[in-house]
Design a protein around this nucleic acid. Structure first.
Length: 151
DNA sequence: GCCAACGTTGGC
DNA sequence: GCCAACGTTGGC
């Protein structure tokens, strides 16, 4: 039973500062079954590492927590939304999301480069080459180590 | 901008 | 059910 997770986002679309301002957000728009299944497994208060991808220096930039367990993602029903899915219906939703709440932003981001340089993180999915999964489980030892690296 | 990784789609 | 083609992600 995993209790820690990592979520990726492109800061141009939704950043840690957006979450800090809003305090809480629906982690909607995820359209990958594996990622969805991880969200289904999330429990309230689980720790979440917040990761900025597709930047010059991809990094873990802060911590959030699960504020609400998985429920149907509203964007799948919205024709005007880019995440609209014609195969989904309110009766038979396909996609789900959790809500996540802001905990804190790191003073210094912990860069992917730094994690890759440390053998301790060798087995962490985000450091794997070609890792594209936008919602990933994180082991307790990795989560705690990252928290301890915060400056 | 390139391209490796990899998930999804669709023809057969 | 296989697998080639295609699309997307995301590091570099």
């Amino acid at each position: 039973m995993a209790r820690y997770w990592l979520v990726k986002t492109e800061p141009g679309s939704y950043s840690i500062d957006d979450l800090k301002r809003e305090k809480k957000t629906a982690w909607s728009g995820v359209r990958n079954y594996q990622a969805r299944n991880f969200m289904r497994a999330m429990q309230k208060a689980d720790g979440v590492l917040f990761y900025h991808s597709s930047t010059g220096d991809p990094s873990i930039v802060g911590v959030a927590k699960v504020a609400r367990t998985a429920y149907p993602d509203a964007t799948q029903f919205d024709r005007k939304d880019t995440h609209y899915d014609a195969k989904a219906s309110v009766q038979k939703p396909i996609w789900e999301n959790v809500d996540i709440a802001f905990v804190r932003k790191f003073k210094q981001p912990i860069t992917l480069m730094r994690l890759k340089a440390d053998p301790f993180f060798k087995t962490m999915p985000v450091t794997a080459r070609g890792s594209r999964l936008s919602v990933q489980p994180v082991s307790e030892k990795h989560f705690k180590k990252i928290i301890s690296m915060e400056s």
